[in-house]
């Protein structure tokens, strides 16, 4: 069973969201998702200042095995991207909930977070996979 931190919110499409103290949201993919994809070789990220809406395909995680779309779990404006992933995409494998974060969004509507799953909800959603 992979690690699912209780302080994060989750989308059924395997993104995690962490609400930061400055009101932005950091987004990544879960440990479970990186395990399914295998060794990451490229990560295509959105551009800073891009406007994203819930469900948009905004990034691509490409592993040795497959290319997988990453969907925006919340709406807002991209304020930062994880440039480390350009040279070290394997951070997504080794530290999915930390150094492997993908991008940060300034939220349009913080109440959207309530539509996401908590850790228990995500755990049961991946049990059904």
């Amino acid at each position: 069973m992979s690690n699912i931190p209780s302080e994060l919110k989750y989308a059924t499409s395997h993104e995690w969201v962490r609400l930061e103290s400055d009101g932005t949201a950091t987004i990544g993919i879960t440990e479970h998702a990186q395990g399914l994809l295998g060794d990451m070789v490229f990560v295509e990220l959105p551009d800073v200042d891009d406007s994203v809406s819930v469900g948009d395909d905004v990034a691509v995680a490409e592993s040795v095995k497959a290319a997988s779309d990453i969907y925006a779990p919340v709406s807002g404006t991209v304020v930062e991207i994880n440039e480390e992933l350009e040279d070290t995409p394997e951070l997504v494998n080794s530290d999915a909930f930390g150094g492997g974060w993908l991008f940060k969004v300034k939220l349009d509507d913080a109440s959207e977070l309530e539509n996401l799953l908590d850790a228990a909800g995500y755990a049961s959603s991946i049990d059904e996979d």
């Binding site: 295998g38 060794d39 070789v41 040795v64 394997e90 494998n93």
Partner: peptide, 8 residues
């Protein structure tokens, strides 16, 4: 076995 951790 598909891998033992990292295929790379």
């Amino acid at each position: 076995p598909i891998n033992y951790g990292s295929q790379i």
